[in-house]
């Protein structure tokens, strides 16, 4: 019984892994790729590790998988945030279908105030 549930969870996880990687290949610019890849691959690997926990029970094997889940939940958004900020600051543009970019507008404002302060 637990083996069946574990295999089902693992299959769901692998399907989401595959879809996330498909999004990484298909979507137009780095920010959209980051979204699809981070969400889907994190959820997929979580599903696989959850299946491992269900199949093995709470032995040291299961606890290792649990620590893996906690680690990827904490680590994946942090890495995504760092890459997104670095990409925007190194002036990689958004895709052409983008609607609005408030961050760029605010950054220009900040730069202008800095220039005025330097001139004074």
């Amino acid at each position: 019984m637990t083996d069946t549930i574990g295999i089902i969870l693992i299959c769901i996880g692998i399907a989401f892994d595959f879809l996330g990687v498909l999004g990484l290949v298909r979507l137009p610019d780095v920010y959209n790729r980051l979204q699809a890849a981070t969400k889907c691959v994190t959820f997929g690997s979580m599903g696989i590790l959850l299946g491992v926990i269900v199949m093995q029970g709470f032995t040291s094997f299961g606890f290792k998988a649990l620590i893996g889940i906690v680690f990827i939940i904490l680590a994946a958004p942090t890495a995504a945030h760092a890459v997104a900020r670095a990409a925007h600051r190194s002036k990689i543009p958004l895709a052409k279908i983008s609607v609005v970019d408030k961050y760029e507008e605010d950054k220009e404002l900040i730069d202008e105030t800095l220039k005025e302060e330097v001139e004074v």
């Binding site: 298909r26 979507l27 137009p28 610019d29 920010y31 959209n32 958004l94 895709a95 279908i97 983008s98 609607v99 609005v100 970019d101 408030k102 961050y103 760029e104 605010d106």
Partner: peptide, 10 residues
């Protein structure tokens, strides 16, 4: 068709 409409908001 990829129905996306991306942008950065505050």
């Amino acid at each position: 068709m990829l129905p996306i409409k991306p942008g950065i908001v505050k």
